[in-house]
Nucleic acid binder design. Structure first.
Length: 258
DNA sequence: ATGTCACATGTTATGTGA
């Protein structure tokens, strides 16, 4: 069972790219972030024609937005917001469903820039709620995968050598501490578990030639509880997706569970 | 400060979010 996460950065502009990738990579489950559509604009017909069913949340105005796609199965929705999020009706950032006995949480954490400021406070507050919810899911007894754009660079190894992100919310010690708290609960970062020392990125900014220079960041993650970790077979990033014409600034990251 | 890209407002650009 292949489970992927992909920050699509506007599903309207990138639908052909998404369909192409679905065909090539053939994931069984996909968590999408940054749909950037009104709820009613989701391209369900095209997704169905590609062989997937879907649950999603868009919003007005067209920011954020998350979805879970499943091939050959209906995702059984368990949540469409993070419990306790005061902005749960305003910002579409979390969706959760069971697919083939695996519980999937799809997330789009707040970016948090500029930092410091209210955006950064919102990021930390959202992550606090996410950590609390993750603790509940961890203990559920079933395999759980928390997949999405965490907007956190976990360690220095997860960013190209630079000082230009030093003030960025993605690398702040407070952000990294939140990620560490998830690992301390027992969640495994799937890519780092299988590739502890590799240089792996999932995001390359459009600016300053960062893709051609491979000046990337690893901010899209799949966290696994022990029941899911036991099944972990492969993990990776479909890096080539970032190099296509009209690509998102993120590449899909994925795991294969036995 | 800059670079790029998508969207909102409602220009014939400018601002925001990333």
């Amino acid at each position: 069972m292949k489970i992927a996460t992909f920050n699509i950065n506007s599903i309207r502009n990138r639908l052909p790219r998404l369909l192409e990738w679905l065909e090539e990579s053939r994931p069984d489950v996909v968590c999408l972030q940054e749909l950037r559509i009104f709820h009613e604009e989701f391209p369900l017909d095209a997704i169905r024609a590609a062989g997937y069913s879907a649950i999603w949340r868009g919003q007005k105005p067209r920011y954020n937005g998350v979805a879970i796609l499943a091939r050959g199965a209906e995702p059984i929705e368990s949540r469409r917001a993070l419990p306790g999020d005061p902005l749960k009706d305003v910002e579409a950032r979390y969706i959760e469903a069971a697919v083939d006995g695996v519980l999937i949480g799809g997330l789009y954490a707040p970016n948090g820039n500029p930092q410091p400021g209210p955006k950064f406070e919102r990021k930390l507050a959202w992550l606090e709620l996410f950590i609390a919810h993750a603790a509940e899911l961890y203990a559920s007894g079933v395999p759980v995968v928390l997949a999405g754009d965490y907007n956190i660079v976990p360690t220095e190894r997860d960013i190209y050598p630079t000082t230009s992100y030093d003030k960025d919310a993605l690398v702040q010690p407070q952000s990294r501490a939140m990620y560490q708290r998830l690992l301390d609960q027992g969640w495994k970062d799937a890519i780092r578990t299988l590739h502890p020392d590799a240089t792996i990125y999932t995001f390359w900014d459009y600016m300053r030639q960062r893709w051609p220079r491979n000046a990337g960041l690893r901010i899209d993650h799949l966290l696994l509880n022990p029941q899911a970790t036991k099944k972990l077979k492969e993990a990776g990033v479909d890096k080539a997706v970032r190099g296509k014409e009209g690509a998102s600034d993120h590449a899909p990251a994925w795991v294969v569970l036995r």
